[in-house]
């Protein structure tokens, strides 16, 4: 077990290093001087030189990379060119919206998908199963931002249950904040829940045809009990993989959904930074999102080991 965790941890660190190098190189190597891009076509030579010095562009590439990574390790993400505030502070404020949104929608995804997938698998081939699979087929195909717009029309404009956009802020208490995140979270979760429910169902059906389920039935377990006690945990392995991938979709998808609901999250920040050509902020936000994805994959791999004793013993 220790060996498994250490190996995974090592690969986590290596992935982070590789990802940071990749992001750094993309910004470096792609045509154009970052400072010139940031200032636009009409930049004055002296402003350009000042910005180049501020960004450290006069230094060798390796030094700049190390300075960037070293800074991030201390929580120093540099200073935003447009906002003139530390990027770390900017990101911190926006993360207070984006992270809860991603977690909220992940929770919804799992809470919807698990029962639906299990229920459909247990009734494979029935009318109920066919109906559910048809609905999830629609759910997979629906663009989440369009679904969000439809929900705004229905729940905010017509029924007036929710506000059409904006974020109440955490300082006003938990409930108003959660309420303003509810529609965005549902919009993000529905397509992902449809995918996960389908994965759950097919993973369960795959395990149900395994020999050990037949063994369990020969002991006297009913179909339903064999599914619960033997198939479910085995089906969790592919399901966990998908959940890990979905978290990254939810984080990234949040960027779009925030646009629909005018939420002050990372998505708004990243688009504002792009239009202001604030590469320092873009670079840091991308690194942060990638860090989150890699971290979640690491957690998923730990979860594998909890589920599967074969991994714990280390092959």
């Amino acid at each position: 077990m220790t060996r498994y965790i250490l190996t995974r941890l090592l690969s986590l660190v290596l992935s982070l290093v590789a990802a940071s190098v990749a992001i750094f190189l993309v910004i470096e190597i792609l045509p154009g001087d970052p400072a010139a891009i940031m200032l636009g076509v009409n930049a004055q030579p002296d402003t350009l030189a000042a910005l180049r010095a501020e960004m450290g562009l006069d230094q060798p590439m390796v030094i700049r990379y190390l300075a960037w990574v070293g800074g991030m390790l201390h929580g120093d993400f540099g200073t935003s060119y447009t906002y003139h505030t530390p990027v770390a502070k900017l990101i911190g404020d926006r993360l207070a919206v984006s992270l809860p949104l991603a977690l909220f929608s992940l929770l919804l995804t799992v809470v919807i998908a698990f029962p639906v997938g299990i229920w459909a698998a247990a009734r494979r081939g029935s009318a109920a199963d066919t109906l559910i699979m048809g609905i999830t087929q629609l759910g997979v195909a629906i663009p989440n931002f369009w679904f969000a717009m439809l929900m705004v029309v229905l729940f905010a404009i017509n029924l007036r249950w929710f506000s059409a956009g904006g974020f109440a802020g955490w300082d006003k208490g938990l409930l108003p904040a959660l309420k303003s995140l509810t529609l965005p979270a549902v919009a993000l979760a529905l397509p992902q829940a449809s995918i996960l429910a389908r994965v759950m169902r097919s993973a369960l059906l795959d395990t149900l045809s395994e020999d050990f389920v037949r063994t369990a039935r020969a002991k006297g377990l009913s179909r339903a009990k064999a599914l619960r006690r033997h198939a479910l945990r085995n089906a969790l392995i592919p399901v966990l993989t998908i959940i890990g991938m979905q978290f990254s979709f939810l984080l990234a998808g949040g960027i779009i959904i925030e646009n629909v609901f005018y939420l002050p999250g990372l998505g708004r920040l990243i688009f504002q930074s792009i239009s202001a050509r604030d590469l320092i902020t873009v670079e840091s936000v991308v690194m942060l999102l990638v860090f989150a994805v890699i971290l979640v994959n690491f957690l998923v791999e730990l979860a594998y080991a909890l589920v599967d004793p074969r991994l714990r013993s280390g092959r």
Partner: peptide
């Protein structure tokens, strides 16, 4: 009634 199967490698729940 008890039953024993052909393929012992897959007849047991691995978890």
């Amino acid at each position: 009634i008890g039953m024993v199967f052909q393929e012992p490698m897959t007849a047991l729940n691995p978890l």
